[in-house]
């Protein structure tokens, strides 16, 4: 296993609020990693630093050996925690957009998944339901043969059936040699697919272990461990 993500003393400060405090972290290839923590713990800030949407105030982050920039954006497929697509575009146009800008994008995979959902390519995104918009965004992200998939709260605010669909889509479409970083609160829904977890609180890493280590060492599930660590 080689190292895909490395954070060294990574720090981000918003005005006087320390969002990330000297974080050291590595993620290897071929892992599905859960980035778990309560609201405001620094999950989204860490993800934005990985995807180059923020710049660190101190320390460094490397993805596939490079600092975030055009080179890393070629290999990182990012699903933000909000609707980031231009809703005035048609589904086919947005697929073409991804195909134009990402060399690793597979339009046939995207169209296959869209067809399974019964979403036509001539449909304008704004006419789709919230759930379907989220599914389209996920399909576009997972139709890339990226080295790292960064999914920010992909199952938040959706019904259990959609959650299952999302998890199934992630599992059946990511490349085995790639890594998936999933940020979520809904641990029980994703626990079965995770290889490793990172617990984050107040901008610091509390724990980074494999799911098997947690089960063997603590004799509890990741969900139970999360509840114990983050108990009020």
């Amino acid at each position: 296993m080689s190292e895909l993500v490395r954070c060294e003393k990574l720090t981000k400060i918003y005005d006087r609020t320390v969002a990330l405090d000297h974080i050291d972290l590595t993620v290897e290839n071929g892992k599905i990693v859960g980035l778990l923590g309560p609201n405001g713990s620094g999950k989204t800030t860490l993800i934005k630093l990985l995807t180059g949407l923020l710049t660190p105030d101190e320390g460094a982050v490397l993805v596939d050996g490079n600092a975030p920039g055009p080179e890393t954006k070629k290999v990182v497929a990012y699903l933000p925690d909000r609707n980031f697509l231009n809703t005035y575009m048609k589904v086919g146009e947005i697929v073409q957009y991804f195909e134009d800008f990402y060399e690793d994008f597979k339009p046939e995979r995207a169209y296959r998944m869209l067809e399974e959902l019964g979403i036509e390519k001539d449909v304008q995104l704004k006419t789709l339901s919230k759930g379907n918009k989220e599914k389209v965004a996920l399909i576009l992200t997972m139709s890339r043969d990226a080295k790292l998939y960064v999914l920010d709260e992909p199952i938040a605010g959706v019904d259990p059936a959609t959650r299952d669909y999302i998890i199934r889509t992630i599992i059946s479409n990511y490349q085995p040699e790639a890594s998936v970083l999933i940020s979520t609160h809904l641990i029980s829904d994703v626990e079965s697919v995770l290889d490793e977890v990172i617990f984050i609180q107040n901008g610091t890493i509390l724990l980074q272990k494999t799911v098997d280590e947690i089960r063997e060492e603590k004799g509890m599930s990741v969900d139970a461990m999360f509840r114990e660590v983050f108990r009020w």
């Binding site: 995807t51 180059g52 949407l53 920039g69 055009p70 080179e71 954006k73 070629k74 990182v76 990012y78 933000p80 909000r82 609707n83 980031f84 697509l85 231009n86 800008f101 990402y102």
Partner: peptide, 13 residues
């Protein structure tokens, strides 16, 4: 805005 999440994730400077 939200569209920036896509625009600024493109492999472009």
């Amino acid at each position: 805005t939200n569209e920036g999440y896509l625009t600024l994730s493109l492999p472009v400077t």
